[in-house]
Design a protein around this nucleic acid. Structure first.
Lengths: 202, 202
DNA sequence: TTGACATTGGACAGCTCTGTCTGATTTACT
DNA sequence: AGTAAATCAGACAGAGCTGTCCAATGTCAA
């Protein structure tokens, strides 16, 4: 009978003590911040930021690569959660896209920074496989918009997705570079994305 | 009298033998390729790619940083040359922008990859200073288009430039990932950029 | 309270990279 | 053909990082 342990809902639940749980969370969070700003952050740097000693990381993640994978998964989870919360399937496509973008653009930028970090680490295909959950949130919305004539049909869904990612990323870069304010960036990002994706705005 | 050597047109001409000239060219080219795909490429890797021994690089570039700077300058030169050849100042803004993009989009993407390589190495200001020559080619064109009512005036020139860079980069990424053909990417890039920048196309 | 779990702080070997230096060899200019 | 320049091949020290280990200490849970 498949019932060796007490409770086993997640894939690998791993009965951990509360402080271990806290450590893992701190490490993932610190890894997210550190690696987003410098993809080559050392284990020492991440440990320091997490308020933990380097060896502790190795207790929970056997290797640097394993930590990178975990951080990536964590980031994708955050983004997807934010997107789901914006209900891409509800309402008019244009409004829905605006809503989803507004709700998630900052986290998407975060995710994108991590994408960059993985670019030489992973094969293009492997990398694609990992951010499928994010695209999955947007793809039906774009398709729906095309069917209803709100979005351009002369370009592929994949291209639209690439464009959205690119513009969101550009907005985040401009903000981080201090060349534009947060709210200005959001407005510009939204406005430009809509112009790029929509059928004649008039 | 400012005439100590025979011929001194460039800033630091350095009388070099022909084989030295070839080595430097090969190193810069190899550095461009290597660093664009992996910003952390080692000196060994670059030397190997250039068909040269590692020590040879140090003959011409005192340190790794110096090589990175030189590669950057070289890349900027390539892009600017391509842009100049497309005559941004000639004709209608929309046509001119199409012409410039078509002539340089791949190199623009290349340049963008090198920008990423420099992001944590240089201060934001220093980085900006270095790619000023590229922006200088586009900025007057965008301004002119805004004045003539061809491009959107409700967004800043800087933002338009960021958007152009982002879309061009996305197109190049899609091509490199094999998800779209070269010519399709060029068409999509052009079409989307124009939709994003132009005033209502109708 | 007690025992198992978890973290600390530090030490360690192994690896890769940078930058320097050498002597020997090949290549370009005159 | 002769000389100076340039490259090669390989060695070297110094530095940083990864991954492992350990003994001591702290902390959770039953």
């Amino acid at each position: 009978m498949p019932k060796p342990t007490t409770a086993a809902d997640p894939s690998v639940p791993k009965r951990r003590r509360a402080d271990a749980e806290r450590s893992v969370a701190a490490i993932l969070e610190a890894g997210l911040e550190a690696l987003a700003s410098d993809p080559d952050s050392s284990m020492s740097a991440i440990a320091r930021r997490a308020g933990v000693v380097r060896a502790t990381i190795y207790v929970h993640f056997p290797t640097r690569t394993a930590l990178l994978d975990a951080v990536m998964e964590h980031a994708v989870g955050l983004v997807v959660e934010a997107m789901r919360g914006a209900e891409p399937q509800r309402g008019e496509p244009v409004e829905a896209l605006e809503r989803v973008l507004r709700a998630t653009w900052r986290q998407l930028a975060y995710f994108h920074a991590l994408l960059a970090m993985n670019i030489d680490r992973l094969s293009a295909e492997e990398l694609r496989r990992r951010h499928v959950p994010v695209l999955d949130q947007l793809e039906p919305l774009i398709e729906r918009g095309q069917r209803q004539g709100a979005f351009r049909g002369d370009l592929s869904v994949a291209w639209h997705l690439a464009v959205i990612r690119a513009i969101v990323h550009a907005a985040s870069t401009e903000v981080q570079g201090g060349r534009i304010s947060d709210s200005e960036a959001e407005a510009a990002m939204m406005s430009t994305t809509m112009a790029a994706i929509s059928k004649h705005p008039a």
